[in-house]
Amino acid sequence: MEQHGNVSNNMLSKRLIYLVEVDILVFLLLVSGIGVGVALWENYHPHISRTAALPTVQITTPLITPPVKDPEMTTWLSSDGKAELQMQTVFYRDDSKTYRFYVRDIATDKKKEIFTNAVISSKTMEIPFNSWSPDNSYIFLEEIRDGSKRYLVVKSSGEPFAQGEQSLDVLVLFNKQNTGYTLNEVTGWADPTLLILTTKTPKGEEGPSYWFDVSGGEFIQLSTRF
């Protein structure tokens, strides 16, 4: 009897050990499966951080009206034919325009943007015949509104003037002189830095001519009328 009891105990122990081994194996398989599943999930789905808040992106409508037609290009050679001034006009739906000016070196074909001017619908810009200074250092441009002209001087290198200005407004600077005359016309260059100005008296008669020295910003009244 006692021997029979010992045999039964041994069989029970072996059964228990077997069951425990199976449970451990199932547990390990289950854990491995979950691990592989999580790894696959992470791999195939974009990682989203659950701790950081997403930034808010605000989409706004652009303020600049898109151009309504292809830009126009006007070119003008310097007197010696060594450089070319290019004026690109971009037209917008509200009739405003942006003028971009470039200088191209004829020998090297290198082009540089030197000046940009955005104008309202009633204004236009033109390159005058005598735009280039004789040594090609400066350029003067005309801005026209209702027949009256404003004259802008820029450096052909695109560099600013001494006070940091990108352009000099001849009309504004002349009016500050309080000469008693009104600016009639800028005709051209007397030398590499001297612009020739004609004026009118308050009665509308022909006034004296001036030189405007663009390098020093001075106006010089002349005894000769141009």
Binding site: S79, G81, F129, N130, T187, G188, A190, F226
Partner: peptide, 19 residues
Amino acid sequence: WHNNFGHPMSHGCVNMRII
């Protein structure tokens, strides 16, 4: 020496742009 064409500017000759 000048770029003021379209306006008298010489001592009797006819000045033109170099090109």
